[in-house]
Structure formats: C-alpha cells, structure tokens
C-alpha cells in the first residue's frame, strides 16, 4: 500500500551546465516538488551558484542542497549562503546538509571525531544566526566570536539532514525539518521508523518531518547503459556505512569485494562485481512502470518524496518526462 508522495529531481555539482539548466528550466512543468543538489566536494560546478541558478530558472519548485558537507565550509559562509538563497528563492530554498560521504571525506583528509555532536551544533548555530543572534561558540568544526549576520529580520530556513546511522537518524527526529535518506529498501524502512520514534520521543509530530528518499534511479528503458548503473551502485556500496549494511541481508563477501575494489582501483572496476541482486537492492532501475511501483513501495513505508537520478545517461530527458507522466497518470492526472 502506498502513501501519498511527491517526486523530485536530484542533480550533483559534477554535472554539466547544459544538463542542470535543462532540469532547472523544466522542473516546474514536469511537476517536480523539489530539485535537490548534491555537492561533490571540489568537483564541477560550485554548489551555491548552481543552487542560485536553479532557483532563478524555476518559479515554483523548491530547490535544496542535498547535501552540503558542513565539514568543508566555514559555518559563517553557510549562514550567509542560507540567507542569500532564501532571499533569491523567495522562500523556496531548503538547506540540506550533513557531514559528507565517507569516500569524499577520506579523499580530502577530513576526519571528524564526533560527527553527531558536530552536526547537532551546526544546526543549532545556523538557526541562532538566522534568528538574528550574535553567537560565541566553538567546536571541532568552527569557532565564532561575537559573530552575527546583522540581517534586518529573522529568517526561517527548513533544515534537512543527509544522514545514515542510528544516532544521526535520532538527531533528525529531534531537531530537523526533514531528512534525505539513501539506501536499500530494508534500510529505508528501519531509518524512517527510527526518525519517527525519535520525533515521538522529542514530543514532535512525526508527520512534520519530511522524509526524502534519494537512491540511484536508473531508467534502463531509455537507453541507459547497464554498466553505468553498476558503476554507480559500486560507488554507493563503497559509501555505505557498516551501520546501514548491518540492517540488510545482502552477501557481505560480495559487498566487501566491491568496496575493496573501489578503494583500490575505481567505481568502474568495482562495478564489474555488482550483480543483478545488488543492482536491485541498491538502486531503482528498469521500466517506468517498475520504477514507479518501487516508488509506491517506498512511499508505503513513510517516504514523503522520492528523488529521481542521477545517473543521467542515455535519453534521460525523455526518461524523466515519461516517469513523471507515469506517476501523474496513476493519480488520474493533475
């Protein structure tokens, strides 16, 4: 049984301007709830300019960062960016952030001792700054002394956290406006339960927390090469923490082999070890009908929004149009 859900589009900074512009310009007419923008650290387009450009080229769609690693930006910059994008988007901006992907952080030599505490503090500090407070605070990630934004009125920016592990999911239930989840179906079910339980415990209504699910969506019905799909899944597996894998029944030997190959060589090489079972567990692929069936399954466990893509390969523009149309047709057209 499926719950009510929205469909959105996910893009990353590593994509080219032509592709991201097309998505920004067509997001309204496609009926996307949001465009979420993931930052590949130090790669491709600059996240905040890309976010601004996406807001400027759309009129109705919510545009969110999904996610920004707080570990690579000064927190004063994040606070200023939040205010600026909120103003550019006239309230359509959502700020998604997290600690960052394991592979990405390791590659850049970033090690955080207490990621949960750091993320909690970052959210608190950003909200205080957006509320107009002058802040004195320091942590592993930042140090502010008498810093305030000095804006004329407080701003209220929705905060989404891109997280994985149980402690982080509890944090979402306690303080966030939404969560951006990624992982196999069994994991998603557990994760949403954890967020809801933490919300209840904190005296919040669980329905006030948006659950955005972003897993690789691979529409093989429009010419996307399956090796691309396998490469993406290899990367996803390499980036999946043990805490998430512990919730699954997948063959850990196969998973470990892929992780080792990605670390030692490349996602392309790792992709050679991704079989059909793993492809299905870690991605949503196949025909548009099958994909939308999977969306409905995910909505049935409490997801409020499903994000399409990347990888954008093959005739992905047509694929996006077809998938949105399929969702629309099942709702009797809107």
């Amino acid at each position: 049984m499926s719950g009510s859900y929205e469909v959105s589009i996910g893009i990353t900074t590593h994509m080219g301007v032509n592709a991201t512009d097309w998505i920004a310009q067509n997001s309204d007419s496609l009926g996307a709830k949001s465009v979420w923008i993931g930052e590949d650290i130090a790669l491709g387009q600059e996240t905040f300019v890309l976010t601004a450009a996406t807001l400027l080229q759309s009129k109705k769609t919510r545009v969110g960062t999904g996610i920004i690693p707080v570990t690579v930006h000064n927190i004063s910059t994040l606070a200023r960016v939040g205010v600026t994008l909120d103003e550019i988007g006239a309230g359509r901006f959502a700020f998604g952030f997290g600690i960052g992907g394991i592979q990405d952080l390791e590659k850049h030599g970033i090690h955080i001792k207490k990621p949960v505490s750091e993320l909690r503090e970052s959210v608190k500090i950003l909200r205080r700054l957006w509320a107009g407070e002058t802040v004195d605070s320091s942590s592993e990630l930042f140090s502010l002394r008498g810093f305030g934004l000095g804006q004329s009125s407080p701003v209220n920016i929705p905060v989404f956290l891109g997280v994985r592990g149980p402690q982080m999911l509890k944090l979402v239930g306690t303080i966030a406006d939404g969560v951006i989840l990624s992982g196999p179906f069994d994991y998603l079910r557990n994760a949403i339960k954890m967020v809801d339980a933490a919300a209840n415990q904190a005296g919040r209504n669980k329905d006030d927390i948006e659950k955005v699910v972003w897993v690789p969506t691979i529409p093989t019905f429009k010419g996307i090469q399956e090796k691309v799909a396998r490469r993406v899944v290899a990367l996803v597996i390499a980036d999946t923490p043990d805490a998430v894998l512990d919730m699954l029944t997948v063959d850990r030997n196969k998973v470990n082999k892929i992780r080792e190959t990605v670390a030692a060589s490349s996602p392309k090489e790792g992709g050679k070890f991704v079989d059909d079972e793993l492809l299905d567990v870690f991605s949503i692929s196949g025909t548009k009908e099958h994909m939308v069936n999977r969306f409905e399954d995910i909505a049935g466990i409490g997801a409020t929004e499903i994000v399409l893509g990347p990888p954008f390969s093959g005739d992905w523009r047509e694929a996006l149009i077809d998938i949105f149309a399929e969702v629309d047709s099942r709702r009797g057209g809107r």
Binding site: E46, F48, T77, R80, V81
Partner: peptide, 17 residues
C-alpha cells in the same frame, strides 16, 4: 563579499540574469 551579509557569487548570478 564577507563581511557583507550576502554571499557574493550567488548575488552575482542573480545580477547576471
């Protein structure tokens, strides 16, 4: 840009539009 409140590159994008 800093210490101005608004992040300059995004404002530059809006002006370019």
């Amino acid at each position: 840009d800093f210490p101005a409140l608004r992040y300059a590159p995004t404002v530059a994008a809006a002006i370019a539009e």
